[in-house]
Computed example of a mutant assay.
Amino acid sequence: MMNIATLTLNPTIDIAYVVEKLEHTDKLRAPPQTVDPGGGGLNVARVFVRMGGNARCIYLSGGSTGIALDALLDLHQLVREKIAIGGETRISPVIYEKSSSHEYRIVPAGPQVSQAECDACLQRVSEIDCDYLVMSGSLPRGVPSNFYAQAAAVAHRRGIRTVLDTSGDALAAAIADGGFELIKPNLKEFQDLIGEKLTDINAICEAAGKVVAQGGARLVAVSMGEFGGVLASEAGTVVLGAPEVETNSAVGAGDSCVAAIVHGLASGKSDEDAFRLGIAAGAAALITSGTGLAAADDIEDLYRKSHPPS
C-alpha cells in the first residue's frame, strides 16, 4: 500500500456558494452551501485516498474554525495529526455566478504562526514514517520563507522523498536547497521563480530542465491549465496536452494533479505516465463543481481516453 504524509501549514475551510448573479447590497439567496476541508496538502490527501492510497494529514489548526476543520477531516475519514496553534484557521469562500459562469475565490492570508508552532511542525516531520512527504500550499504569516527547505532537509535525512507545490519566496528558497523528488508550479508560479514571463514552450522546457540540472528537483512539472503541461527530468522534457473538458470549478485542480502524479510514481508508473495521470486529474477536478476536487473514476477515464500509455 502506498503511504504518504501531507503537510499543510495554511489549511482552510472551503465554502462553496452558487448564486444567479452577484449584486451589491441585496441579499443573495443561494442553494445549500457545500463545505469541505481545504488547503494544498489536505486537498492532495483527499484525492490520493480516493485513488486507493493511504495519506496522513499533518496540519495547523486553531480557534473555533480550527475545531470545525478537525470535524470536517473526520467526516472525510482522513487520518489526521493536528498541530494546535493560537490563531484562527481561515475560511475561503468560493462563489459561482450562474449568469456569467464566473467563479470568484476569496483567499485570506491565514493566521499568525509562532516560532514554537513552526518548531512543532519540524518535530513532527522528524517522526513521520512514509514514502513521500507532500508539502503543499502557502505559508501563513510568521512562518519563515525557507520553512519548506527546513522540513525537506529533515525528511531527506530520514530517506523520505519530498514533493513541493508552493509559490513565491517559499518555492525559491526550497529550490535553492534542492533535493526534491518533484516540484509542481503552475506556469505563473514558474515564471515568478525564473524571473521571466516565459510563454514559448521551448523556453519553458529549457528553464525547467535547468532547475533539474541544478539539483532543485528530480522532476519539474509545470502545469499550464487547458494547455497541458511540461515535465522535465534528467531524461529530457515531455510536453503533454490537456483533455478538453467543461469547467465547472478550478478549485483544487493543481492539488488533484499533484496527488495523481505522486500516486502514479508510488505505484510504479514511469515519470511520463505519472505525469499523464496528473494532467488527467487536473482536468477531472475542473469537471467537479465547487470544492469537490477530482473523482477517481473521472481521473481514470480521462487518463485512459486522452493519454493512453505507450
Rank of each mutant, 00 (worst) to 15 (best):
residue 83 I to S: 07
residue 182 L to D: 07
residue 142 G to F: 08
residue 227 F to G: 05
residue 86 G to H: 01
residue 257 C to W: 09
residue 58 I to C: 07
residue 204 I to H: 03
residue 59 Y to W: 10
residue 132 Y to N: 13
residue 176 A to F: 04
residue 61 S to C: 09
residue 25 T to K: 11
residue 254 G to D: 00
residue 259 A to T: 12
residue 291 T to S: 13
residue 160 I to A: 03
residue 76 H to P: 05
residue 301 D to Y: 09
residue 270 S to A: 05
residue 130 C to G: 00
residue 8 T to Q: 09
residue 197 K to W: 04
residue 291 T to L: 04
residue 108 P to S: 08
residue 140 P to S: 14
residue 252 G to M: 12
residue 195 G to F: 11
residue 243 P to Q: 09
residue 74 D to I: 00
residue 174 A to G: 10
residue 138 S to R: 03
residue 215 G to D: 09
residue 156 H to S: 13
residue 287 I to H: 10
residue 140 P to M: 15
residue 56 R to I: 11
residue 2 M to F: 02
residue 24 H to C: 08
residue 146 N to S: 03
residue 134 V to E: 13
residue 22 L to S: 07
residue 69 L to E: 04
residue 81 E to D: 11
residue 13 I to F: 05
residue 19 V to M: 10
residue 307 H to Q: 08
residue 213 A to Q: 01
residue 3 N to P: 01
residue 147 F to C: 02
residue 181 E to G: 02
residue 194 I to C: 08
residue 13 I to T: 08
residue 233 S to R: 00
residue 227 F to Y: 12
residue 152 A to L: 11
residue 94 V to Q: 11
residue 290 G to R: 14
residue 223 S to I: 01
residue 106 I to G: 04
residue 227 F to W: 08
residue 305 K to M: 02
residue 27 K to I: 14
residue 160 I to M: 03
residue 188 K to L: 14
residue 229 G to F: 03
residue 307 H to V: 08
residue 22 L to A: 09
residue 144 P to D: 14
residue 252 G to E: 11
residue 76 H to T: 04
residue 227 F to A: 14
residue 56 R to K: 10
residue 282 G to D: 13
residue 279 I to K: 01
residue 288 T to F: 11
residue 265 L to A: 11
residue 262 V to R: 07
residue 170 A to T: 09
residue 125 V to G: 13
residue 188 K to T: 11
residue 254 G to W: 02
residue 149 A to Q: 06
residue 28 L to E: 00
residue 7 L to E: 15
residue 192 D to F: 06
residue 283 A to P: 13
residue 187 L to I: 15
residue 60 L to D: 01
residue 72 L to W: 04
residue 216 G to Q: 07
residue 164 L to C: 08
residue 180 F to N: 07
residue 8 T to Y: 03
residue 193 L to N: 09
residue 189 E to T: 13
residue 303 Y to N: 07
residue 257 C to S: 15
residue 103 E to K: 05
residue 225 G to F: 13
residue 243 P to H: 05
residue 196 E to Y: 01
residue 295 A to V: 09
